[in-house]
Lab assay of single mutants.
Amino acid sequence: DSWHDTVDGIELELHGADEELLKLAKELLKRGVSEEEVRRIIEELLK
């Protein structure tokens, strides 16, 4: 799946992010949310 590559990229960027955020990112990508949107959501949550 192409979203796996996206998640791997996000995981590299979010090496400090907790497991729950990564699960959320994967779930959003699986549901068709764009990579940009996922990054934006996670950045908001990390604030």
Rank of each mutant, 00 (worst) to 15 (best):
residue 1 D to L: 11
residue 1 D to G: 13
residue 1 D to S: 14
residue 1 D to Y: 01
residue 1 D to F: 03
residue 2 S to P: 13
residue 2 S to C: 05
residue 2 S to G: 12
residue 3 W to D: 12
residue 3 W to M: 11
residue 3 W to G: 10
residue 3 W to P: 04
residue 3 W to C: 07
residue 4 H to Q: 14
residue 5 D to A: 12
residue 5 D to K: 02
residue 5 D to F: 05
residue 5 D to V: 10
residue 5 D to M: 05
residue 5 D to I: 06
residue 6 T to C: 04
residue 6 T to H: 14
residue 6 T to R: 13
residue 7 V to D: 10
residue 7 V to Q: 10
residue 7 V to F: 15
residue 7 V to G: 10
residue 8 D to Y: 03
residue 8 D to F: 05
residue 9 G to R: 13
residue 9 G to W: 15
residue 9 G to N: 12
residue 9 G to M: 13
residue 9 G to P: 12
residue 10 I to N: 04
residue 10 I to Q: 08
residue 11 E to A: 12
residue 11 E to N: 14
residue 11 E to R: 09
residue 12 L to D: 05
residue 12 L to T: 05
residue 12 L to S: 08
residue 13 E to H: 04
residue 13 E to R: 01
residue 13 E to V: 10
residue 14 L to P: 04
residue 14 L to W: 10
residue 15 H to I: 14
residue 15 H to R: 05
residue 15 H to V: 14
residue 16 G to P: 06
residue 16 G to S: 07
residue 17 A to E: 07
residue 17 A to H: 09
residue 17 A to M: 15
residue 18 D to Q: 09
residue 18 D to R: 10
residue 19 E to R: 07
residue 19 E to M: 10
residue 20 E to K: 10
residue 20 E to N: 12
residue 20 E to G: 08
residue 21 L to E: 01
residue 21 L to D: 01
residue 22 L to P: 01
residue 22 L to K: 08
residue 22 L to M: 14
residue 22 L to V: 09
residue 22 L to Q: 09
residue 23 K to L: 05
residue 23 K to S: 06
residue 23 K to H: 04
residue 23 K to E: 13
residue 23 K to N: 11
residue 24 L to N: 01
residue 24 L to W: 05
residue 25 A to N: 00
residue 25 A to R: 03
residue 26 K to T: 06
residue 26 K to N: 09
residue 26 K to M: 06
residue 27 E to A: 07
residue 29 L to E: 02
residue 30 K to D: 15
residue 30 K to V: 08
residue 30 K to A: 15
residue 31 R to Y: 12
residue 32 G to I: 01
residue 32 G to W: 01
residue 33 V to I: 07
residue 33 V to T: 05
residue 33 V to S: 03
residue 34 S to E: 07
residue 34 S to W: 02
residue 35 E to P: 15
residue 35 E to V: 15
residue 35 E to Q: 12
residue 35 E to I: 15
residue 35 E to Y: 15
residue 36 E to K: 08
residue 36 E to M: 09
residue 36 E to V: 08
residue 36 E to C: 02
residue 36 E to G: 07
residue 37 E to K: 05
residue 37 E to S: 03
residue 37 E to L: 06
residue 37 E to V: 06
residue 37 E to P: 00
residue 38 V to D: 00
residue 38 V to F: 01
residue 38 V to T: 02
residue 39 R to P: 00
residue 39 R to I: 08
residue 40 R to G: 05
residue 41 I to F: 07
residue 41 I to M: 04
residue 42 I to R: 00
residue 42 I to E: 00
residue 43 E to V: 09
residue 43 E to T: 12
residue 43 E to L: 14
residue 45 L to C: 04
residue 45 L to M: 11
residue 45 L to F: 08
residue 47 K to Q: 12
